[in-house]
Design a protein around this nucleic acid. Sequence first.
DNA 1: GTCTATAATTCGATAGAC
DNA 2: GTCTATCGAATTATAGAC
Lengths: 232, 232
Amino acid sequence: MVERDPSATPSGPRSAGRSGGPAAAVGPEVDAGPPPVAAEAPDVGVHRRPRRSDASRAAILAAARDRFAADGYERATIRAIARDAGIDPSMVMRYYGNKEGLFAAAAEIDLRVPDLTALPPEERGARLVRHFIELWEGDETLTGMLRVGATNDAGAECIRRVFAEQARPMIDAACPVPAEAAARAALIESQILGMALCRYVLRVPPAVDLSHDELVAWLAPTIQRYLTAERP
Amino acid sequence: MVERDPSATPSGPRSAGRSGGPAAAVGPEVDAGPPPVAAEAPDVGVHRRPRRSDASRAAILAAARDRFAADGYERATIRAIARDAGIDPSMVMRYYGNKEGLFAAAAEIDLRVPDLTALPPEERGARLVRHFIELWEGDETLTGMLRVGATNDAGAECIRRVFAEQARPMIDAACPVPAEAAARAALIESQILGMALCRYVLRVPPAVDLSHDELVAWLAPTIQRYLTAERP
DNA sequence: GTCTATAATTCGATAGAC
DNA sequence: GTCTATCGAATTATAGAC
């Protein structure tokens, strides 16, 4: 079958690593902290005394992102994540409490939605489409979150939150009628996620074969209409 | 957490049953047959001697569809499916060989795509959108297949095949330029599946709140454009 | 902080009686 | 055809030594 062979990667990090690219923009280490352990740093504000385990935590998070992305929530085991990170599985439990805590820490995503108000209205659709295409192809974590969100409720909540917090404000700013912004944002999200689903998760052949330019040419008018067209 | 409580349904069928509605239209019992058992009916063509176990097989398939739909591939256990069907788990193995065989048998879907050529071109987008909305809300199996397809490759193949075999011909017949039909079908599929993902799987609030009429009003022009508009 | 050992479940799958 | 009993493997999670 096409299932993952556990013996294929007996040790060491995964081949298709993130290479520290978009991962570096994820944000300032927003892990949940060691849950059942003594709180050694109550003032988690600007300054924080670096823990000796920061390297281990980062390695775990990177491996978790890869595994969750590749295998989904259920098949991504703590053992495999720990093995990829070169760390004992019990450390993962100690740092993140349980599997859900680990996922929550690994699921921090930055969509880096561009500022649409700086563009002339007729270019906003194309700008948004091109941004999401490049975002999706540059970071397999997004595909993973989509995979997890379809099966696990914590993953779905993650996607809902990411789009509500990061995409909505920009869409609100670009929408003509504020009362319609919610519906317009949902429509845009449906087309963006739908194409991502077909291309990167389901791998529907004709969707995979579309070039970036073709995608922009087809999808930009759709997004543009959802964004600014008069309500039908 | 929101995970399923195994003790919530100690026995008996699931509360949200299919009530034999769309399931009856799935097709003429296309199960894989008992794989490791003696082939008692080699001529599985038009006529077939009804097996004594047909009722059990149907019960298993119905329960499997519900479980796969609700829990996804990994969490849907053969034990739980058998319990819902009121049948011993070993029977599932005997009938369908293994878990993948069971899924393949349960994943037979009929999209019942309407004949678009009978409609004036300007009404085809709305017709298609309304059909898929009603289809999706009338049969939770489709949501389940989407859930499974996101995590499991067999599920993804199922979705690819269903759309390729059932939706493509109708779209081909309605598309102006045959060479562009593949891309147009992929675009339509991305918008249909994307909205289904947001509404029924991820349950993004603004997408869930959209009424049928609003959905048709917003999505129909998109589908219409993917279907017949000149290539951008 | 790190690791070993293991508890406690649960799973898919098999063997065999009736 | 149906069911009981169970195997072997895998999982999350915990306890505790160093």
